[in-house]
Design a protein around this nucleic acid. Sequence first.
DNA 1: CCTCGAATCTGTTTCTCGTTAGATTCTAAC
DNA 2: GTTAGAATCTAACGAGAAACAGATTCGAGG
Lengths: 193, 193
Amino acid sequence: MTGASTEVGRGKGDLTRRRILDAAAAEIARHGPAGASLGAIAAAAELQTGSIYFHFASKQRLVEAVLEEGISASLRRLDEMAVPTGTPAQRLRAGVHAHLRALAELSDYAAVVLAPQFAARQPPGFRALRREYLRRWTELIADAQADGTLAAGPEPGEVRDLLIGALNAAGLAGQDPARTADAVFALLRLPPC
Amino acid sequence: MTGASTEVGRGKGDLTRRRILDAAAAEIARHGPAGASLGAIAAAAELQTGSIYFHFASKQRLVEAVLEEGISASLRRLDEMAVPTGTPAQRLRAGVHAHLRALAELSDYAAVVLAPQFAARQPPGFRALRREYLRRWTELIADAQADGTLAAGPEPGEVRDLLIGALNAAGLAGQDPARTADAVFALLRLPPC
DNA sequence: CCTCGAATCTGTTTCTCGTTAGATTCTAAC
DNA sequence: GTTAGAATCTAACGAGAAACAGATTCGAGG
């Protein structure tokens, strides 16, 4: 249930900072940002409550850091897998796999990012990253529509929301990524690989 | 942004109870169950904080009542629209329309029900209603698969989660129900009506 | 008009949580 | 070994919220 940890930290403090972030992501995923108490987070990170303030200026900042960590890690995975080569259908498949992998590997962070309460009141850096993530997806969808891989009627943005919504539901439910991907492709009647 | 109100209440107290429920649903949808304060709920319902306790034994009970109201209203709509007549494709279409209508009409209640934090720790009555709702959908999906309307590969339960996830994402984003339904049918390449 | 119960209000109590400040310990460089 | 800074702990404060207990008002029936 913990998230992933990229970027090797250097000092001892960096490791603690990561432990706090992981604990906060788990706590927020379970109880929401308001319901997650610093006491519980500190306990999970094996720390005293006050010590959190050496690493984060406030609870608000901690929550924001968790959000940014989640979306930026997702974006990183999308960049790695859905590179602009190959047919639209291939790139769409790669994008689906990347998103599902991100959900599986980042579990708690992903859950936090996807919580509906964060649709509004996003911190500044988070909004930009999220917009960028959605923009990539819109491109993938539009290309697939132009290609005939996906039905051309609906707006690309609409299709993107539907698709990501479907992937999120399966991902948060803990479904196996590969299995879910196959199901999606079958339903959309994409040509087999 | 308020929810719907079915079932005409009799006395004055019933109306107040409904006002509290609506206010609670809105507040919970915005700030999560932990972040929603009785003070804010009471203010929105034009009441003093303490007066809520005449209608609900505790904050926990109030939250549970909002949950049950949301899921039972959704189930009611599904019952009305997706009756067991017609072809599997027709019933599937009806189900999609019912779900989207429920999301649009119940907005705050639906948002509360769909919040990921409620996946666990559900109140007793809520679990049963939710199970029933999913069971209906599994039937619709299985019939559509047997019919060839939907791809037969993936498990019905998997398909159900994907489909409902997609509908929820569009519904909570405030998309027009009819428009969303058309997009879904086009993507799944369902035969036109 | 009076009465009684339902409904609401006011004030109080208790508890949790975020935040802060100062003391304390750990770690590495000199 | 000493020292300086990083990292953590301890203890408290203050705000806000849930919960509770009477006191008060409202509204229909006799």
